[in-house]
């Protein structure tokens, strides 16, 4: 079983991202579940969401404590929450930031760090506003690159089927993020 944890802020679409990713894996024949941290959400406050993926039906009905991947949608969260909590030692942390993995390494004590400037990509594709770009679809393209577990084409199709508007722009943002992801520390 693969367990993925998303960190974002209320309103950034972390929960939707967890569902779109689940859908992409589902389209490739996997069993999936996706859920938010069981709580009460507020705009701007830290939000956590999860995706589980397996080759067989998922019966686990409890929270994820030791994820294989962590995805951070908002770089400001690195100072606000312990994004590495429980992350497996050989698991990847993928961060939306303008910084390189080497620069992030000064802030985070972890080997496998990947970064992508999803914010600029979202702005380029007019997703959300300049002030509050929606990065949740772009970051999924980066996840496809980092994990190698789900094809970028599948992620783009899952986005096209799930996004309420600007389906193609969202899918292309994922592709751009896929191409722009920097994987460090291997």
């Amino acid at each position: 079983m693969i367990e993925i944890r998303f960190h974002g802020r209320g309103g950034q679409g972390s929960v939707i991202a967890s569902k779109i990713l689940a859908k992409a894996f589902f389209m490739e024949g996997k069993y999936v579940s996706a859920f938010p941290y069981f709580g009460v959400e507020r705009r701007g406050a830290p939000v956590t969401a999860f995706t589980r993926v397996d080759e067989r039906p998922i019966r686990a009905k409890y929270q994820i404590y030791e994820p294989d991947y962590v995805i951070v949608l908002d770089p400001s969260l690195l100072k606000a929450v312990d994004v590495l909590k429980g992350l497996k030692k050989d698991g990847w942390v993928l961060i939306n930031t303008i910084k390189t993995p080497e620069e992030i390494k000064k802030e985070l004590n972890h080997d496998k760090i990947a970064t992508v400037d999803a914010t600029s990509i979202a702005i380029k594709h007019h997703l959300g506003s300049q002030a509050a770009p929606i990065v949740n679809t772009a970051i999924l393209g980066a996840f496809s690159k980092v994990s190698g577990l789900v094809k970028i084409e599948t992620v783009m199709n899952a986005i096209r089927e799930s996004a309420p508007a600007k389906q193609e722009e969202n899918a292309l943002a994922a592709k751009d993020a896929y191409d722009a992801t920097i994987m460090g520390g291997e």
Binding site: F26, S33, A34, F35, P36, K61
Partner: peptide
Amino acid sequence: EDAFILSHTAEA
């Protein structure tokens, strides 16, 4: 349905 464990968890 158990709250959140089913109500807010997406499955196929």
